[in-house]
Simulated scan of single mutants.
Amino acid sequence: MTLDLSTPDLPTPDLPTLGLSTPDLPTSSLPAPNIPTPHLPTSSLSTLNVQTPNIPTSSLPTPNVQTPHLPSGDDRGVAGLPIRLVVAFVVGTAVLGVMLNMVSGVGALTTTELDAHPTPDVVHPGNGTIAVAAVDAAGHAVPDVTVVLSADTAGLAGGKPVVGRTNETGVATLRATPTLSATADQGTLTITVKPPSGQYADRRANADVLVVR
């Protein structure tokens, strides 16, 4: 058996048409608004009377403006005088120091170095005699030179230095008693010389005397 599922055809009812018309309003029927303009009389406005105050000038104090004093050429010279004196003093001191160094250098060049040569230069503890010759840089003997033998790592009997003076041949004979401590096997004695005048100098170390057991 076959079922018929088709859509039935329904009739459309006739609907009435609505008549909506826009009403025609005449523009001449609207009255024009009457807005009155206010009238302001000009005679009612009063004139402003602004008076300028009269300030007497005699009541104002006169400002006291002082003109600064600028130093003249003489005043500037007097003010700068202490500084100039200080500068001159410093420069003068420096120049004087240089001149003194030059003079001392010239004096050092004119002096002759003295040397002391001990004989013998190796001794033993006990009584002995050490001859010390004073010579100049050229090896010439210089008389009247004071020779001092002092203890160093070795000692001297009595604990005092031994002093002598060179003779005409430039030799000083020193009688000394060198000593050594119980634990020392050797030691030294130092020699210094004092030149007789300013033409000699003893600036270098002299030879030592060696003391051995």
Rank of each mutant, 00 (worst) to 15 (best):
T37K: 03
D136Q: 10
A32W: 03
P16W: 09
A172G: 03
T188C: 02
R76G: 06
T129C: 13
T17C: 14
A133L: 05
P26T: 01
P61E: 02
V86L: 12
A131E: 07
K160C: 00
G73Y: 08
S21L: 09
M99L: 14
E168Y: 01
G92V: 14
M1F: 04
R76Q: 02
V193F: 01
V193L: 01
A141G: 13
H140P: 07
L156W: 02
P16F: 13
T17Q: 14
P36C: 09
M1C: 10
M1W: 02
I130L: 04
T153M: 00
L81W: 10
T146G: 05
P31H: 13
L109W: 14
G77I: 13
L114A: 03
T166P: 05
A207R: 14
P125N: 08
G139I: 10
M99H: 09
A201V: 14
T110F: 06
V148E: 00
V103S: 09
G164W: 10
T67P: 02
V142Q: 02
V123C: 04
V106T: 09
R213G: 15
V106G: 15
G155W: 01
L100H: 05
T57R: 00
L156P: 03
D152F: 11
D115H: 14
T52M: 03
S59V: 00
L30G: 07
P56W: 04
V147S: 04
G158T: 00
I35H: 00
P23N: 10
A176K: 06
I83S: 01
G107I: 14
T169S: 07
P33I: 11
T93H: 15
P61R: 03
V122I: 15
G80Q: 12
V91M: 10
S104L: 11
K194C: 07
G198M: 12
V171Y: 08
F89M: 13
I35G: 02
G128M: 09
T62M: 06
P71I: 01
N101R: 13
L48V: 07
D144W: 03
V91G: 14
T17V: 13
G187M: 01
S58N: 13
G105L: 07
P56I: 07
G128F: 01
P82V: 10
R213F: 08
V212M: 12
G19E: 13
G187Q: 03
A131D: 09
Q66W: 00
S150Q: 05
Y200N: 04
L174E: 00
S197E: 05
P63G: 06
P11R: 09
G128I: 09
T12G: 12
D9T: 14
L18T: 15
N54T: 06
N49G: 11
V91I: 11
P63C: 04
P13R: 07
G139H: 09
T42E: 06
D115T: 05
A176V: 15
T22A: 07
H39W: 06
V147Y: 00
G97N: 11
A116F: 15
G105Y: 02
D75K: 02
T153K: 05
A184P: 04
L70P: 00
L45P: 02
M99I: 10
G159I: 13
P23E: 06
